[in-house]
């Protein structure tokens, strides 16, 4: 390596001071003569304006991965978490209310019968298991949203934030809401 370095330095010196003896090096010399004596680095750098630099940074930021995938979290905190199920069960009821409300409003125009008497008659005609199953599909979200909503209201008072309390409370709400849902659907 040293020898090569010495060689090129010599070449440079010669390039600055051409000597007719080194005729076999003429092509190399012609190239080397355009070089200065300044040390340069082989890394290809580019002059960038500040605006170009900003646009590179902006593009890099847009290429960043967004957020960790839900898979990496503890299942009991994401998939079975009371918070998201509170939102889901609430949406079932509010969505149902909005759909029923809109349907009830246009029912006379389309000829549907959505009066409480006709719905009750239709439900009454169903077999017991189906009726109970349908009622459970409404009763469980109701029980869950009630119990978990109360739990969240208690949190809002700043109470019950110990990790064990949160974890246990979540499972209690699941158990109680299923039991409550079954009771409301089949025994009421």
């Amino acid at each position: 390596m040293m020898a090569q370095r010495v060689g090129t330095t010599a070449l440079r010196r010669v390039a600055g001071n051409p000597n007719t003896f080194f005729t076999h090096n003429v092509t190399k010399l012609a190239l080397a003569s355009s070089l200065s004596n300044m040390q340069t680095r082989p890394v290809a750098t580019q002059k960038l304006t500040p605006a170009d630099g900003d646009s590179i940074l902006a593009k890099q930021r847009l290429a960043r991965p967004v957020s960790p995938h839900l898979d990496i979290y503890d299942k009991s905190q994401t998939y079975f978490g009371g918070s998201i199920w509170n939102r889901i069960t609430g949406s079932i009821f509010s969505g149902g209310l909005y759909v029923f409300g809109s349907a009830y409003l246009i029912a006379p125009l389309v000829g549907w019968h959505l009066e409480s008497a006709s719905i009750a008659a239709a439900v009454g005609a169903l077999p017991f298991a189906l009726k109970g199953g349908l009622k459970f599909l409404l009763a469980w979200p109701f029980a869950f949203h009630c119990l978990n909503g109360t739990r969240h209201l208690v949190y809002d008072l700043g109470v019950g934030f110990q990790r064990r309390t949160i974890a246990k409370g979540g499972w209690y709400v699941w158990g109680a809401s299923i039991v409550g849902g079954v009771y409301l659907a089949f025994f009421l």
Binding site: Y104, S116, A117, I119, A120, G124, K131
Partner: peptide, 22 residues
Amino acid sequence: ALYEFETTDVGITEAIKRVWSA
């Protein structure tokens, strides 16, 4: 719609009671 239901039908509480005990 809720106003209509409350004024022309039996009201939400009674309606749920009806359907639930049907």
